[in-house]
Structure formats: structure tokens, C-alpha cells
């Protein structure tokens, strides 16, 4: 999760965008790495996958 916490979810072929929304995360504000690699939120994830939700920072 963007705050550094971890969640375990029972998933089977769920779109990452839907996962984000179920967690209350706005997909526009984050990028998601599936098993260490950035993927589109159109991709699906299952129980065995590890997702890292990264909040995009934009300041300088």
C-alpha cells in the first residue's frame, strides 16, 4: 500500500483498477508494480501475485 502497510487479498483474475478502487485508492494517483514490474491497471492480478501500489510524487 502507498503508506507502507501490507494487505492480503483473496483474488482470482481481478483487474488491478478494480482492486485499487476496492481499497479506496484513486488509480490516477498511483502506479502499480506486479511482481516487481510496473503494469497497466488494465492487467489482472490473482492471489499469487504481489502488487506494490506506489503513490506518484510530483513535487520538486
Amino acid at each position: 500500500m502507498p503508506d507502507g502497510s501490507k494487505r492480503e487479498m483473496e483474488l482470482d483474475g481481478v483487474r488491478i483498477e478494480d482492486i485499487l478502487r476496492s481499497l479506496g485508492v484513486n488509480p490516477v494517483e498511483v502506479i502499480v508494480a506486479k511482481n516487481g514490474k510496473i503494469v497497466s491497471e488494465e492487467e489482472q492480478a490473482s492471489y499469487a501475485d504481489e502488487l506494490k501500489i506506489v503513490r506518484i510524487v510530483h513535487g520538486g
Binding site: 502506479i31 506518484i56 510524487v57 513535487g59 520538486g60
Partner: peptide, 26 residues
Amino acid sequence: GAICGFQGQATTIIPGKSACLRCIFP
């Protein structure tokens, strides 16, 4: 490079060789 509070991110983009900024942040 970009920052927000305690958080930051960085990457290097080499045109023609690596992912560009838009590939990473569509």
C-alpha cells in the same frame, strides 16, 4: 526526480534505449 514530503522517486531516461517518462507515468 520528484519529491513529496518524506517520499521521492528517480529514474534515468536514455532516448531510444530505455522506458521514457510517459511509459512509466502514462
